[in-house]
Design a protein around this nucleic acid. Structure first.
Lengths: 209, 209
DNA sequence: AGTCAATCCGTCCAGTGGTCAGATTGTTGC
DNA sequence: GCAACAATCTGACCACTGGACGGATTGACT
């Protein structure tokens, strides 16, 4: 009376094991799961096998979509820069009086809202030359957005705008990391007026020389 | 004719296996080995077992000196801040005309000379509350050094000096990380005049408001 | 000499990233 | 409609890691 079924062909009560052999969009699902995990874990704790389990798939299936762990991290990083770019543009889009302040605010907001994801974006693995294709693309877009704002809104000449963009991004990046709850200087960096502080810093750098 | 010897009591030709049972200063040796490894590897690639092998000791011996991997990383981080503090003080010691510029130069020099060690110092594990005892100590010392310089040399009032110190450190930290060969913005950040740029940034922040 | 705590050893375990041959599928050409 | 093909997924396997454990070795102290 007991039917012997191949483990895959079994059509039991339609629960369990009824998922199709092919997932359909494993790649997106894995990235989404990774972003979910990064909600409360460090990038170093992110396990490929965990992700596979979450999505309900054998862990070796991931290697059909990502060469290795490093490439997955790079994809996550690229996705982060893509989202960041969208938010930066969105901040500029609604005609604010001070575009630079809007950029600073949006940048810090992103970093504070997704700290682990933010850290992933700047991990060495994510920037490794063989992985960084999309990272360069979106990251460069973010830089260009800042650069253009400085040139067009603040009327800075090319060279000075470039240096200024580097300085501002550095300050934002440092502030985001140092003020992070996981940073050793966490207690020193003020949290409430952090954004105002950053805006002052940015303006000081623009007005220098 | 073949002597059966306990693996430890064996006094063969005095080569191999003649090391004493107790290492003597395993803790320092491990930290030193770790710093050596960090010369050309990422902190995430640092393996406790590798360190044990380098020092010639069973890998479980490490747990007599460090609770776990996190504590070892924290110790390494603390050591980094200790060295950084020494170098900052040394930079101030030889009566330069511009103490702030000297600090900036020394800071970036340290970060560029020991990139992997520098990254370790700001890892989340290193700042975890149960590990961060010594980190806080030396790291706080570095901050105080910067703060004092701003107050005494630039005659800034307490509050402003504090904000300024946060801004300058953020800029230096961001610049150090973004300009790092492993950073996604590596190409954007200029390398040759990086220090001059940073000094300009610092002065701009001091002179702001 | 005898006791004690620190240090170190070997072994064991669960978990990880990665590889590989083979099973399962959608698609493409006939 | 069907055969071939390429993409995807599986389960088993490997080397390795961090960590836990009982027991061995040792220096120091009484």
């Amino acid at each position: 009376m007991i039917e012997k079924l191949s483990p895959h062909a079994s059509r039991l009560p339609k629960s369990m094991t009824d998922r199709p052999y092919h997932h359909g969009n494993l790649r997106e699902a894995i990235v989404a799961a990774a972003l979910d995990v990064l909600g409360d874990k460090e990038p170093s704790e992110l396990s490929l096998r965990d992700l596979a389990r979450m999505v309900g798939v054998g862990h070796s299936a991931l290697y059909s979509h990502f060469r290795d762990r490093g490439e997955l991290l790079a994809v996550i990083a690229g996705e982060g820069f893509r989202i960041l770019l969208l938010e930066l543009r969105h901040a500029l889009g609604k005609g604010t009086q001070d575009p630079l302040a809007a950029l600073v605010t949006a940048y810090l907001h992103f970093a504070r809202t997704n700290p682990a994801h933010y850290r992933t974006m700047f991990r060495p693995e994510s920037a490794a030359p063989e992985n960084a294709i999309h990272v360069e693309e979106w990251c460069g877009g973010c830089f260009q957005t800042l650069l253009s704002t400085l040139k067009e809104q603040r009327h800075l000449p090319e060279e000075k705008a470039f240096d200024c963009a580097v300085g501002i991004w550095s300050t934002l990046h440092g502030l985001a990391l140092l003020g992070d709850a996981a940073g050793p200087l966490h207690q020193k960096v003020p949290k409430e007026n952090e954004v105002d502080l950053a805006i002052n810093f940015a303006n000081a750098l623009v007005g220098a020389e």
